[in-house]
């Protein structure tokens, strides 16, 4: 038996350095949609993608395990399903249910090393990646402040691949725009980490959603870029500020949106089940090791579904990108 013809082309690509949390964000997606009682549901469009949603979410929430380090170009086919509405029928006779909105998400999740300057070193196929980026319409770019503080290489993992992508698209005869056509969700990750949260607190960017039963602090999406700019200043290499410039140069400003996210969220004291500003770190060093970390309590993803839903809504109904030679 042979299954259907070739795989669907990805329309959203995850972009970020190794360990920036690309796969973890995806693993946390279904947890986030369930915990937030979102009007959106996510289902797999094939068995393997369904299994990822189920297994990785369970491993993250039950086993408190991060997904394994990605070693190949993974593809997931999911569908976001919204809620239909009851609309009055003709002459207000009988209410008519409108069809539930459906957004297809074909996600590409490559190993972070493929975006680096030396993709060969990590044995990843950058040409294949670029082929996929040219055909995709949305990008989730993950900026990891912790890695930036230690390594300062976010720019390295952005600029090399970005210039090649721009060369392929903007440099081709058939393309008339001056910016890449992709919608870009910039996710500042690891909001749960002490230094990130405290920075946001200092900047007075924290707000609390009165509807949130746990009282978690958040940052309005409109303020996220402020935090991003500040976090760029702590870059070990000093090159992070160029990340923002590069994004500005290559993407349309009206197609960029910033989000402050955490895939595992804050620790909750099981006795109070409420955010404790004095004890919220959910990722802590393993005892007697000091090298690696583990998740301490249940995960409560923050701002994880929002970038995906935002991209999905914008991509719905858009024609595919026309890359050179396609």
């Amino acid at each position: 038996m042979v299954s259907d013809a070739g795989p669907a082309r990805p329309n959203i690509a995850m972009w970020g350095a190794p360990t920036s949390g690309k796969t973890t964000l995806l693993a946390a997606l279904s947890i986030a949609l369930l915990q937030r009682r979102s009007p959106w549901r996510i289902v797999g469009a094939d068995d393997a993608s369904t299994a990822f949603l189920k297994d990785k979410a369970a491993a993250l929430s039950r086993g408190k395990e991060f997904p394994r380090a990605t070693q190949a170009m993974d593809r997931y086919r999911w569908v976001l399903i919204g809620e239909g509405e009851q609309r009055d029928g003709l002459l207000r006779r009988r209410p008519k249910p409108t069809p539930a909105p459906r957004i297809g998400l074909n996600l590409l999740d490559p190993p972070g090393g493929v975006y680096g300057d030396e993709p060969d070193k990590f044995g990843t196929d950058q040409q294949e990646l670029l082929d996929n980026l040219v055909g995709s319409k949305g990008i989730v770019f993950l900026f990891d402040p912790l890695r930036e503080f230690e390594r300062g290489d976010a720019f390295d993992y952005l600029y090399g691949a970005l210039t090649q992508l721009a060369g392929r698209m903007l440099g081709s005869d058939g393309y008339t725009g001056d910016r890449l056509p992709h919608h870009l969700a910039v996710c500042i990750t690891k909001f749960d980490e002490y230094r990130v949260l405290e920075t946001a607190k200092e900047l007075k960017l924290l707000v609390t959603d009165p509807e949130d039963p746990y009282g978690f602090p958040r940052i309005d999406d409109d303020d996220a870029v402020e935090l991003f700019k500040w976090l760029c200043r702590i870059s070990a290499s000093g090159s992070a500020e160029m990340v923002l410039n590069a994004l500005d140069q290559f993407f349309r400003r009206d197609r960029i949106k910033f989000f402050v996210t955490s895939s595992i969220g804050f620790y909750l004291d099981p006795r109070t089940n409420f955010f404790n500003p004095d004890d919220y770190q959910n990722l802590i060093p393993k005892p007697a090791e000091g090298v690696s970390f583990h998740i301490r309590g249940p995960v409560h993803p923050i701002n994880v579904m929002e970038p995906i839903v935002w991209l999905g809504e914008r991509l719905a109904g858009e024609p595919p990108n026309e890359g050179p030679g396609r």
């Binding site: 190794p18 380090a69 190993p111 972070g112 090393g113 070193k121 044995g123 990843t124 890695r147 090298v291």
Partner: peptide, 14 residues
């Protein structure tokens, strides 16, 4: 041998 250094932030490599 392919792997990564313990405690590393790198991807897998030779």
């Amino acid at each position: 041998i392919e792997g990564k250094q313990p405690g590393s932030l790198d991807d897998y490599g030779i």
